[in-house]
């Protein structure tokens, strides 16, 4: 039983991270119907900038409290990513708003490649270790281990997500975003500055990406210029699973995907009598994704619109 509890905890932590990144995909998709493939790379940039700042601070003041160092890293990484997200939208997506559907997808891939390689040129090819400055504490819940950092990740993700929910549902900006998502044209007739709303969507999504990037690198203890790709892919799958364009869906999809992966890796071998093992972890995740989409073609919480093109 303690193993099962542990696997659920493992899944929830992983899922919280997926969910946080998935939010960025889903916000952009909700408004622009565009897969922002570069979002995973923005996450990576967040981690990299934060680590660089933290390294610089520790170089000057090695005895500064760890949490303060991490917070100052975040305080620089977040605006840096916001700026990056704003720039990406302006340069790579806005000019293509009326282009054929796939054109922005290709620029997104192009931007991904550019960001990866810029990061490689700036920070090198090595995996960058996260400095060991955070206090380590482990709690035992029902026989399962959970670290302070893991609790922090789950709590912070929940907070950020509820904040976003509030922003979208309760503020003027949120209403403008929802209006743009329904119809950009009508929204602009109603006096919504569509370009501004889209820019802000990218900026907010990128800020979330920066937070996620920092959490990923703190949790796994490393950052690398290639780390955004797989993370982005998984998060995107999570967003689709939950119903892309839907904020609650991204959270649900992220958490579900995390738990599915953990349980898949942990039990697939025992269930199949050793025929399939944890090397089929991703197969398991994709299989669930495909099964869900076959029965609910717009994802778990997606709108049931038959002709969504």
């Amino acid at each position: 039983m303690d193993i099962f509890t542990q696997q659920i905890i493992n899944g929830l932590v992983l899922g919280s991270i997926y969910a946080l990144v998935a939010l960025g995909y889903t916000m952009v998709y909700g408004i622009l119907e565009l897969i922002n493939f570069a979002h995973g790379e923005v996450t990576m940039m967040g981690a990299m900038v934060a680590l660089a700042v933290m390294g610089a601070i520790l170089g000057v003041a090695p005895n500064m409290p760890g949490i303060l160092v991490v917070v100052s890293g975040a305080l620089l990484a977040i605006p840096a990513c916001m700026l990056l997200g704003f720039a990406i939208e302006r340069v790579a997506y806005r000019p293509l708003r009326h282009a054929p559907r796939l054109a922005p997808l290709i620029t997104a891939i192009g931007v991904s490649i550019i960001l990866q390689n810029v990061a490689m040129l700036v920070w090198g090819r090595q995996y960058i270790p996260f400095p060991e400055i955070l206090p380590k504490s482990t709690f035992t819940v029902f026989g399962a281990h959970i670290t302070g950092l893991q609790i922090f990740i789950i709590v912070l993700s929940a907070l950020v997500m509820s904040g976003l929910w509030w922003l979208v549902q309760r503020t003027r900006l949120g209403r403008a975003m929802r209006a743009c998502a329904q119809s950009r044209e009508v929204a602009s007739l109603m006096g919504v500055n569509v370009n501004k709303v889209i820019s802000l969507t990218f900026v907010i999504g990128s800020a979330l990406a920066a937070i996620a990037g920092l959490m990923v690198s703190a949790y796994y203890g490393l950052a690398h210029y290639y780390m955004g790709f797989m993370l982005g892919l998984k998060a995107f799958s999570a967003a689709v699973l939950g119903g892309i364009g839907n904020i609650a869906g991204a959270m649900l999809g992220g958490l579900l995907l995390g738990v599915i992966e953990a349980l898949g890796a942990g039990y697939i071998g025992d269930i199949t009598g050793g025929f399939l093992g944890s090397h089929y972890q991703d197969v398991f995740a994709f299989f669930v994704l495909i099964a869900v989409l076959v029965f609910r073609p717009s994802g778990l919480l997606g709108e049931r619109v038959a002709t969504r093109a």
């Binding site: 493992n10 944890s278 972890q281």
Partner: peptide, 22 residues
């Protein structure tokens, strides 16, 4: 007692390590 698998791009091993711990 157990054989588990990951990938050369993975960073999360909690699930397989938990299974191994069992």
């Amino acid at each position: 007692v157990d054989r588990q698998y990951t990938s050369d791009k993975a960073t999360d091993f909690a699930a397989i390590l938990t299974a191994i711990k069992g």
